[in-house]
Amino acid sequence: MSAQQDRNTIADGTAGVIHAPPAVAPNPAGPKEILAARARALAAAPEAETAGERIEVIEFELSGERYAVRAALVTEIFPLTDFTPLFCAPAFVLGITNLRGKIVSIVDLRRFFELPSVGLSNLNRVILASDGVMEVGILADAIAGIVSLPVAELQAPPAALTGVREEFLTGVTGDRLALLDLGRILADRRIVVHEEVE
């Protein structure tokens, strides 16, 4: 039972953190203002900073939309210079590439999310994600960088959205940055290709 109490204590601590007033008020203004606000928040005295209040995310662009994934599960990011399309694989598998002697599979999230219209874009970066069991390269147009995201800034995705993508959406920020749940994507059975010849 003492372990139980310990957990409660931890939970209480976390709860306190989560309920702390947002460092940055949700702001529908342009990205510049938000960045400036973020910069101010970052520059502010760190005494209010506690683990859990901010999360490190990698922000990237995909067909003009802004996404982010938590940095914890990202092993590395590399430019896609060459790849080989793979026969008999589902459309969301772009192909395979050679990363320092290891074959890495590359997934086009837009197709995995079954987005209705997938136009062309400059998918030139690969975010290599791994949870120790699953490892997959995720295509991105461009990487904006590592952002420290205040948890309080995240809002629930609009309830009206019910696509595959929304299943993996953790939340969106006021400036329309969509945070994807990378752990869930990696653990999802649908991302695994396991097909036999009928």
Partner: peptide, 14 residues
């Protein structure tokens, strides 16, 4: 010969 990685657990004909 190298394996295709955990995501491509089994690809038909490959």
């Amino acid at each position: 010969a190298k394996p295709l990685g955990p995501q491509l657990s089994r690809v038909r004909n490959v």
